[in-house]
Structures are given as structure tokens and as C-alpha cells.
């Protein structure tokens, strides 16, 4: 049974000019212990997708449709109290801004204790010390305030908070974007280590394809709110099927050749008035006439590999 099953997830932001559909009919399944990397450019809806898994979208954003099933329970349909109980216990968040994610006026220990208290879980110094040790921190960090910790240490505290109640799913929203390359790698290794111990599934949001290649089992590529391709990491890199995925990978600078930087010409479409057909059609080198009028359905190409494209 899947650890997480997302069906037709759709999120809209109400704006003066109408509803902007930031996440459009996104579906995927995650097995226990599986790591999914969500990639895409800014505004593609990857962070919105990740946050809506915990229903953390704030107004004017709204989850308009879809199911988010964890062990048969639908987060999308849960009432306030059920939702509160599922957060952190079933599905936990490792936030984006490590710098600012901890309450500056409480010690780390207090921020663990209120988590335990909110879920009637067993807390205590020994439990906190064990959690801190498991993410490679000194147990003495418990008595520190966030401003006394480095960025990497704060992110480790956030990881320890995320695994404290042994959730089935961990959502990590660009957890390393504020850190330098060396610390990034250490933090990700820590995340992988604790995730393996727990057997939890992970959704990792990021735009660093290199980091994703090392971390994820499967990669989901998002474009204009849609999940355009989802597949095993090797297949995605070796044989990308969606033209957008291919161009994204081709745009990565290599070490060997010092050549011209290859970008993707054009800009993503407006989410307020998306093109009637495939959202990538206006920039797609392989677009056919029907791409401009008909939204491609999701097609399964092989085990765990699917794409939303007419020509792939």
C-alpha cells in the first residue's frame, strides 16, 4: 500500500484578475521509503504542491479539488482537529527557510516539547537528546536558542522535529536552499539517513537537478502547475521523454565542455489565462497543431514512468 497517494490535486490563488491555478490536476503515489524529487522553475507550483500536502496553503490560496491519502485517511477532507492531529504525526514538514523556521524566543527543547504536548506524545530530555543525536547534533543544542545555532544546525533541528513523531511522509521544501554547498550535502545525507531509519516516504522540492539526481529515487517535473513527467531518476536523466524535461536537463552546465549556456527560450505561461492546450506548447520545439488546442492526458510509459505529452 502506498505511503502517500495524491489524486487530482488542484490549488488556486484568488487574484483581482481571477483565479490563478498554481497546481493543476497533480497525481502521484509514493511507496514507503521512497524519495521523490519535485523539480521545476520558479512559479511552476512545486512548493505550492508540497505545502498543500499538509494543507498549509494560506489565503488567497485554496485547495479546490483532490485527495491526499495517507494510510487511507484523506488530509484534503479532514476537519480542523483531525488535520491538526495528522500534521507532524503522519506527514511532517522540513521547511524552506532554515534561518527563520524556529521560534526565536523559545529554546530548541521548548519547541520539541510543544510538539510532543500537542500530540500527547512522550517527550522528555532523553527523547530530545536522542532525536538531536540522530541528526548529528550535540544533545546540548536542546538548551540553545535558534540564534545561537548556525544555518546547518538549525536545519538539522528542523529535521529532528520532522521525524520526532515518526511520520509516514516527510515533505522537504527546498530544505537546503539557504545553505552553502558543503552543508547542503551534509544536511541531505542526514535527511536520507533518518528517513531510511524511519522508512518514511519523502517529497523533496528543489531546483538543483544535480542534488536531486543524487537524492531521489524518482523525479517529478512540474511546469505551469502541472506534473508533466514523473519517472525513475535514471530514466529521467538518461532518456527524458517530455520535451521540457529534455531541455531542462540539456540546460545543465557540464564540467567538460566550456560552451554556450543553453537555456529554454520563452517564458512560462500566465497561470490566470493558460493556453488552451499543453502549457508548454508555445515554447516547445516539437509542438504539433493539436498541442495548442488539446490538453495532453497522462500516459504511462513504463513502470513508475508517466508523461503528459502528445509527442513523447
Amino acid at each position: 500500500m502506498s505511503a502517500l497517494s495524491v489524486r487530482h490535486l488542484t490549488v488556486e490563488f484568488a487574484t483581482r484578475a481571477g483565479a490563478a491555478r498554481a497546481v493543476n490536476d497533480v497525481s502521484f503515489d509514493l511507496e514507503p521509503g521512497e524519495r521523490l524529487g519535485l523539480v521545476g522553475e520558479s512559479g511552476s507550483g512545486k512548493t505550492t504542491t508540497a505545502l498543500s500536502l499538509l494543507r498549509l496553503i494560506r489565503p488567497p490560496g485554496r485547495l479546490v479539488a483532490g485527495e491526499i491519502l495517507i494510510a487511507g485517511q484523506d488530509i484534503a477532507a479532514a476537519g480542523p482537529e483531525a488535520l491538526r492531529r495528522m500534521r507532524a504525526a503522519r506527514i511532517a514538514l522540513v521547511p524552506q527557510g532554515a534561518m527563520n523556521a524556529l521560534n526565536p524566543v523559545l529554546t530548541c527543547a521548548a519547541q520539541f516539547e510543544d510538539l510532543f504536548a500537542a500530540h500527547n506524545a512522550q517527550g522528555g530530555r532523553a527523547r530530545i537528546a536522542a532525536l538531536l543525536t540522530s541528526v548529528g547534533l550535540d544533545p546540548a543544542v536542546a538548551d540553545r536558542y535558534p540564534h545561537q545555532l548556525s544555518g546547518g544546525m538549525k536545519q538539522r533541528v528542523c529535521i529532528a522535529l520532522a521525524i520526532a513523531l515518526r511520520p509516514a511522509v516527510i515533505v522537504a521544501d527546498e530544505p537546503t536552499s539557504a545553505l552553502d554547498v558543503i552543508v547542503q550535502k551534509q544536511v541531505l545525507k542526514t535527511l536520507i539517513a533518518v528517513q531510511r531509519d524511519l522508512g518514511a516516504a519523502v517529497v523533496l522540492v528543489g531546483h538543483d537537478m544535480g542534488l536531486m539526481a543524487q537524492f531521489a529515487h524518482r523525479i517529478g517535473v512540474m511546469y505551469a502547475g502541472r506534473l508533466v513527467e514523473l519517472g525513475p531518476v535514471r530514466e529521467i536523466f538518461a532518456d527524458p521523454r517530455h520535451p521540457y524535461t529534455r531541455m531542462l536537463i540539456d540546460s545543465l552546465p557540464g564540467f567538460c565542455e566550456r560552451g554556450v549556456f543553453k537555456g529554454i527560450p520563452g517564458l512560462p505561461p500566465s497561470l490566470l489565462s493558460p493556453p488552451p492546450g499543453c502549457p508548454f506548447a508555445p515554447r516547445c520545439p516539437r509542438a504539433e497543431p493539436r498541442c495548442a488546442v488539446e490538453v495532453p492526458e497522462t500516459r504511462v510509459l513504463g513502470p513508475g514512468h508517466e508523461v503528459r505529452c502528445h509527442v513523447a
Partner: peptide, 20 residues
């Protein structure tokens, strides 16, 4: 602030998030 969102993600009660 991010810590408010993390507090929500931790499943803290509305009251605790508001006060602390």
C-alpha cells in the same frame, strides 16, 4: 514568518501558535 508555518505544520493548537 516561517516559524508560524512550521508551528502549524507541527500540529500545534491554534491557541498555542497565537500566544507563544
Amino acid at each position: 514568518e516561517d516559524y508560524i508555518m512550521l508551528a502549524e505544520a507541527k500540529g500545534l493548537s491554534e491557541r498555542r501558535i497565537f500566544l507563544a
